[in-house]
């Protein structure tokens, strides 16, 4: 019954003396936060140098921002789950489910905002179920959300009968197409979510508890933090954001598609890692993954513009992801 001594928790001699000497290295994660920004700028500079007229045109930068908006919202949710040492593999199919619910509401001629809320609610419920199973039944996040990936995708197909619902709504289309001060509306929405989530993570009680549960669930529990509540909340948020992103995806493509888009999932995990969020939990920023999303979209856009064949694009993106992730690791 006695607690065994844990050598891993013993002090690391020299570590703190070095830290007190070099103030800027006081936080060993400081540089990993900035690496993604450097990488992003590098991508802009490289493509800008190769084809400045096409890549750096306002038209194209606008394209990159439009393309980044929906992934950025999904990435925020993913960041929350990864910060609790979890992962949400169901985001892409929850997005699809949200879109299908939106489509069903739209066919019943409900107002667009009701359709949107319907999609968000469906997403949130799926997320809460994820969180409850993970925390109450103590089943691995990976497994539970993998199951939900399938369940949500299947539910979307069942509810939609496998058929897309065309959604023609000028208001939604305006949101997807238009811009203000050179920045697309979609990006304003995504950025607002990013800023609010940053606030939530670093300036609220919920945020501290989230990071505590991610960093050290046993210590958090010992201090009376409810793991269940935090897990349910983060997966609920992730689902809610996926459900919300569904509305934007509908605005973007003008239809509620019943087939899940797994590219969004892979993109979100890559962006979270590139953004310097620890897969072991407890360590996160919101802006890092956001910049990483811009990076990935700029990369894809730039490769397309300079005419790199699709096959090589897969390889390039993979290399950038792995390279950045290993750089982040080295910096740590």
């Amino acid at each position: 019954m006695d607690t065994k001594s844990n050598p891993g928790s013993a002090s690391k001699p020299g570590a703190d003396s070095k830290l007190s000497f070099k103030q800027r290295l006081r936080d060993p994660y400081f540089w990993s936060d900035w690496l993604v920004v450097v990488a992003f700028l590098l991508v802009i500079v490289v493509f800008g140098a190769i084809n400045p007229s096409a890549f750096l045109s306002i038209y194209n930068l606008n394209n990159i921002l439009v393309a980044s908006a929906i992934p950025a919202i999904i990435v925020v949710g993913q960041t929350f789950t990864v910060a609790t040492a979890g992962i949400d593999l169901s985001v892409s199919s929850i997005l699809t489910l949200g879109a299908v619910i939106f489509g069903i509401c739209f066919t019943k001629e409900l107002p667009v905002w009701v359709c949107m809320l319907g999609g968000m609610l469906a997403g949130m419920i799926a997320g809460i179920i994820n969180g409850l199973i993970i925390s109450v039944r103590k089943i691995n996040d990976f497994i539970v959300t993998l199951g939900m990936l399938s369940i949500a995708a299947g539910t979307a197909l069942v509810l939609s009968n496998g058929r897309p619902v065309q959604i023609i709504n000028s208001g939604l289309a305006n949101v997807a197409i238009n811009e203000k001060f050179g920045v697309p509306y979609l990006m304003y929405i995504a950025f607002a979510i990013v800023v609010f989530s940053h606030f939530l993570l670093f300036h609220t009680r919920f945020g501290v508890h989230l990071l505590a549960v991610g960093g050290d669930p046993d210590s958090a529990r010992a201090m009376g933090v409810s793991i269940v509540r935090i897990k349910v909340a983060v997966y609920g948020i992730s689902g809610l954001l996926a459900g919300f992103a569904a509305t934007l995806a509908i605005a973007r493509i003008g239809a509620a598609e019943p087939a899940a888009n797994t590219a969004i999932l892979l993109n979100s995990v890559a962006a979270v890692v590139l953004g310097g969020v620890s897969l072991f939990g407890g360590r996160a920023t919101i802006f890092g993954p956001f910049v990483a999303t811009l990076l990935l979209q700029a990369l894809s856009n730039g490769l397309t513009i300079i005419g790199v064949a699709s096959y090589y694009q897969y390889i390039s993106v993979g290399i950038v992801v792995i390279l950045s992730a290993s750089l982040v690791r080295n910096v740590r």
């Binding site: 607690t3 001594s5 844990n6 928790s9 501290v208 990071l211 505590a212 991610g214 960093g215 050290d216 046993d218 210590s219 958090a220 010992a222 620890s278 939990g281 407890g282 360590r283």
Partner: peptide, 13 residues
């Protein structure tokens, strides 16, 4: 209040 030998502080906070 309890002070555990290793189960006490969250390192990332």
């Amino acid at each position: 209040e309890t002070v555990y030998q290793n189960l006490s502080l969250v390192e990332d906070l």
